[in-house]
C-alpha cells in the first residue's frame, strides 16, 4: 500500500484529531444540556432556599445544599494541609529513596480504591467505632481520606515542575530550606496545587457512595458537626432511585453541575489574576 504524502498525512492528522476533540466536547455538551433541559424548569429561588418536604417530593433542597457545602469544606480543610504537606515532604525533604517510593506507592493505591470501600471504612471507623454516628464529621473525615491521594499527587507534580534553578538561587542567597519552600517553591507551584484541590472539591461534591454510609441521609437542616446530613448527590440518587420526584432529581442535578462549573470558572479566573500579579 502506498503511504500518504507527508502533507496529506499532516492534513489527515489534523482533521482526525479535530474530530476526536469535537466528539469529546459534544459528549460533554450533551450531558450538560440533557440535565439542564430537565432541571432548569424546576429551579427557582424557593427550590434553593426551602427545605425538602415529604421526602423531597415537594419543597426545595436547602438542607442538602448546606450538607454538601459543610462536608466538602470540612473534607478539603482536612485533606489539603495533609496532602500538600506530604507532597512537600516527599519532593523537597527526601532524596526519593525506598521509603519515599513506598509512601508514594501507598498513596497511589489509595487513589484506586473505589469510593464505596471508603464509605464502608468510614462507617466502621467513624460512625460505629469512634461513635461519631452518621454525621458531617464522619462524612468529612471519610471524604478527606478519599481526596488525599489526588491532592498529594497533583501537588507533587506541581512542586516538581518548579525549575530546580529557583531552589539553587534561593539557597545560594542564604535561604533556609523552609524559606526556599515557602517563598520560592510554593508560590510557583500554587496554580498546580490549587487545580488539584479544585478537582478534589468537584469530586467530593459529586460523591455519593462514601457519604451515604457516613453522613447518612437525614433531610433536616444540619445544626452541628454531629448532625446527619444528606448531600445533593445523595438526594439526587434517592429521589431518582425511589422514584420520589424525577423533576426535583433533575433540579438537584442541575444545581450540582452549575456549582461545579462555577467553582472551576472562579478558580480559573483567580489563578489567572494571581499568575499575572506574580510574574
Amino acid at each position: 500500500m502506498r503511504r500518504l504524502a507527508p502533507s496529506a498525512e499532516e492534513k489527515a492528522a489534523r482533521a482526525g484529531l479535530w474530530a476526536l476533540t469535537l466528539i469529546t466536547v459534544a459528549v460533554l455538551c450533551f450531558i450538560i444540556l440533557f440535565i439542564l433541559r430537565r432541571g432548569l424548569p424546576v429551579l427557582s429561588f424557593e427550590f434553593l432556599t426551602a427545605n425538602p418536604v415529604d421526602m423531597g417530593k415537594a419543597g426545595g433542597i436547602f438542607s442538602t445544599v448546606v450538607g454538601t457545602v459543610a462536608l466538602t469544606v470540612l473534607a478539603v480543610l482536612i485533606a489539603a494541609p495533609l496532602g500538600v504537606g506530604t507532597a512537600i515532604y516527599l519532593t523537597e525533604y527526601t532524596w526519593g529513596g525506598p521509603v519515599t517510593r513506598i509512601i508514594r506507592f501507598g498513596a497511589e493505591c489509595l487513589a484506586g480504591i473505589p469510593s464505596i470501600i471508603f464509605g464502608l471504612f468510614g462507617f466502621i471507623l467513624f460512625v460505629t467505632k469512634l461513635k461519631f454516628g452518621w454525621s458531617i464529621l464522619s462524612g468529612g473525615l471519610t471524604l478527606a481520606f478519599m481526596l488525599l491521594p489526588t491532592i498529594i499527587r497533583t501537588s507533587e507534580e506541581a512542586i516538581k515542575s518548579v525549575p530546580p534553578e529557583y531552589r539553587k538561587v534561593s539557597f545560594s542567597l542564604g535561604s533556609t530550606k523552609w524559606q526556599t519552600v515557602t517563598r520560592v517553591v510554593l508560590p510557583s507551584a500554587l496554580p498546580g496545587i490549587v487545580t488539584g484541590i479544585v478537582l478534589s472539591i468537584g469530586r467530593s461534591i459529586g460523591e455519593t457512595a462514601a457519604t451515604i454510609f457516613t453522613a447518612g441521609s437525614a433531610l433536616r437542616l444540619p445544626t452541628s458537626l454531629f448532625s446527619s446530613s444528606r448531600t445533593m448527590a445523595v438526594h439526587f440518587y434517592i429521589l431518582a432511585r425511589e422514584g420520589i420526584s424525577m423533576p426535583n432529581a433533575y433540579g438537584t442535578a442541575a444545581i450540582l453541575i452549575i456549582a461545579i462549573l462555577g467553582i472551576n470558572l472562579l478558580t480559573y479566573f483567580l489563578m489567572n489574576r494571581f499568575i499575572r500579579k506574580y510574574s
Binding site: 534553578e165 529557583y166 539553587k168 538561587v169 545560594s172 520560592v184 508560590p187 506574580y278 510574574s279
Partner: peptide
C-alpha cells in the same frame, strides 16, 4: 550562575 535566573518576582 551561568544562566541568569531571575526569580518570578
Amino acid at each position: 550562575f551561568a544562566t541568569p535566573v531571575p526569580l518570578p518576582r
